[in-house]
Design a binder for these strands. Sequence first.
DNA 1: ACAAGTATGCACCTTTTGGTAAGTATGGTT
DNA 2: AACCATACTTACCAAAAGGTGCATACTTGT
Lengths: 128, 128
Amino acid sequence: MHLLVSMVMSTVRSSTTPFICGLDAALRVVSGKWKPLILFFLAKDPKRYGELKRCVRGVSDKMLIQQLKELEVDGIVVRTDYKEIPPRVVYELSPFGFTLADALIPLCEWGTEHTDIIEKALVRRVTA
Amino acid sequence: MHLLVSMVMSTVRSSTTPFICGLDAALRVVSGKWKPLILFFLAKDPKRYGELKRCVRGVSDKMLIQQLKELEVDGIVVRTDYKEIPPRVVYELSPFGFTLADALIPLCEWGTEHTDIIEKALVRRVTA
DNA sequence: ACAAGTATGCACCTTTTGGTAAGTATGGTT
DNA sequence: AACCATACTTACCAAAAGGTGCATACTTGT
């Protein structure tokens, strides 16, 4: 289906929702500095908090927790607390989260394919 | 292809680039409050500045120009100034821009399909 | 002279987002 | 009774993104 078509469908819907197109809605879920990475690593397999933190290099506790919480209320991620001491908490994608991961594949491929061009462009944004 | 696979491919690449996965790169291009909408309307057909502004309801001149400029340096959008008075400037998607639009289709559909759930979740983000 | 029409620039402010560094909780181990 | 591991919290600050309103350019038609 052409982008136009899928967007027009959502425009029809927009009369009853605050979103004009589904793209808007979807981007609110995935935008956040560390969310792509979190999705990346959780798509692989469930992970304990500390384990995940080691994967997502450079993230602070505050940020990681915050982004995980948002993904959790969005229903993308499931948090399981084993109530042990020391704490053991496992994060994983929900089935809904996996549908999102699937929808992201083409975008991810597009990004991978054009990484160098995008990179140069981002530099140009500042320079020019 | 599974999300994992396409992401792992980009991870290999990441040794030479600042992006860990293509998703990161792609999201930098489309994130911006009005960019989804701009893509939406330009995917349909080329538009003059004022025409586009009327489509993207609520956007200010400053924002619209700014987002268009970024999309332009990113190579997504082409700007054509006809050097007339009063000014006539036309914006349209480049071929590269259309490849992006294609890659966004599944995400757009995903968003459209789950608009109501996402909406509720965004409210919950604030409440809880 | 001057108003109309069109795309853009700029100065200033508010809001949102992200970052740093410290602190808390708890039961088992020493 | 001090200490460890682990997940999470908090207070505070910096940077980025977004918003408002006014200014500018220039030529055609009045």
